[in-house]
Design a protein around this nucleic acid. Sequence first.
RNA 1: CGGGGUGUAGCGCAGUUCGGUAGCGCACGUGCUUUGGGAGCAUGGGGUCGCAGGUUCGAAUCCUGUCACCCCGACCA
Length: 571
Amino acid sequence: MRMQQLIGDRFKERPSDCVIDSHALMVRGGYMKYVGSGIFSLYNPLRRITRKIEGIIREEMDNIDGQEVLFPVVMPASLWEESGRFASVGAELMRMKDRNGSPMVLGMTHEEASVQLVREYGNSHTKYPFMIYQIQTKFRDEARPRGGLIRVREFTMKDAYSFHTSQADLEAYYQRCYDAYTRIFQRAGLRNVAIVASDSGMMGGKISHEYMLLTPVGEDTIVICPECGYHSNMEAAPSLVETPSSGNPAPLTPVHTPGQKTIEDVCAFLHASKERSVKAVVYHLLSTDETVVVFLRGDLDVNETKLTNFLGGEIRPEAIDENVSLVAGYIGPVGLQPKNCRVLYDRSLQGADNLVCGANKAEYHNTGLSMPRDVPNAEYHDFAKIAEGGVCPQCGKRAITLSRGIEIGNIFQLGTKYTEAMGMQYQDAEGNLQYPIMGCYGIGVGRLAASVCEESHDEYGPIWPMSIAPWQVQICCLRADQEGVKEAAEALYEALGSQRVEVILDDRPVSAGVMFSDADLLGVPIRLIVSPRNLKEHVVELVTRDKSVKTTVAMEEVVETVRKMIAERLG
RNA sequence: CGGGGUGUAGCGCAGUUCGGUAGCGCACGUGCUUUGGGAGCAUGGGGUCGCAGGUUCGAAUCCUGUCACCCCGACCA
């Protein structure tokens, strides 16, 4: 490739709407162009990067016996009705109608399609286990795209689906995939990746992990215990009952009242319910004179029936105090007297000026009620979220640290949710019909590219690892107008190319400053500088984008030196 | 969905208070000079000022409505 012909402008100014560096650099460097909210086109350099990432993923997926397939982007809604997700998934699922008026959807994930593909094939236990994967465009109508390629609506994703005849087999395969993912991110050049337990959300299933790039610009919060190595997404970390903010730091001791649920029961229920809307919660008895009271921050409509049934009580928003009603509602045994309760709130409600459990401030004031912070004797607790310095759910030590992270991959043990819903069965060795157990595994390709950029860049541009760099070598030919210079650069370009080195040649008649700045933005790992000055000495300057090497190499040794360096960096 | 903000050339912005021929820098075309970290001079091309109404002799500017986008939340395989 010649820089002269490379499509895409590079420029100095940071676009005003770029918040994170990877976004700004990828726009400034001619990697991609904004098309619409959360929608981008990729120029050649970025496409070359994503192709390399896809190559690494393919190798590792094939290596764990995956078979690449391709599912449709546009699917009949009936397929999603089979699993129940046509109704259960929200507006992120893009719905439309074809010319005949039939409802269709744009693929945002492909569990349904994968089951549909192998439903008949997988009719015998002798066919198992197997894994299918694809690398393909997904569309999710995200409420708020952000951060360039970090959170977009249309994106390329590798999604894989495995099918098993036993939980043990799924778990064994899950481990292989876990290891393969670790290798993928390592090969892509990421250094600070944490593997955390996660909340499986709408996917269903039980065990799941997320691969997180630790970075301050990440949108997820990760809970880490340095004491025992516990890692978890904040979303999934159990929130232990903690001490009142203003009071005695001693932990509250739950007391079980006969016929009532304990605090542990309630916690267990809420965590097991996997309802996303359950964010906060829980108060319990300090003595048998008091009664279990639960305050939810979140959408009570979704959970109140279940939780009320569980507690054997009823929801009585007005039961305690009129101030409470709009905050969350009150759940407790029938006939509870307000005086007997202590009023506890999730700390995240404190000072919530704009939003209190779905009721905005204006609405709240229209009721004539005071804000929750005015409730007499209210105590604020960190129920909803585990906090910095909090208690580790695993080892119990008060050592929790919080980090930010970008989710670059996730793996789930799905179970039989989809195979049951869609009627996929096989005959086992005894001739009995069984539902296969599934796992699913995803990696966002573009997000991964952006993550590498985010982790590996300086003020001048990205510093691509050799494994995914758009080109391996960039030749900067200074003063191509002078005698013999252009010819020397061309010869080098040909020589490297004939050795299958990926090389881009810049012999434009621009100033050195422009040429070097553009090279910095392109982030190619090895830079060769051909110039009149160097030619006099019969050498070429070799500098690496990461600044680890800066040397001169005799003309006839350049190709060999470069090949060695590439081989080293590719491992 | 709640809060805040922005829409003027490919990018970054001024002009809007107080209505009067559409501006600047970068980028782009042409010519000459220059050439090791974003060169200089000259000259040119490119914008129905987000959109729609309204007020006015006259609207980027004032009024009404509307759309889009960005940021913080909520939400999110």
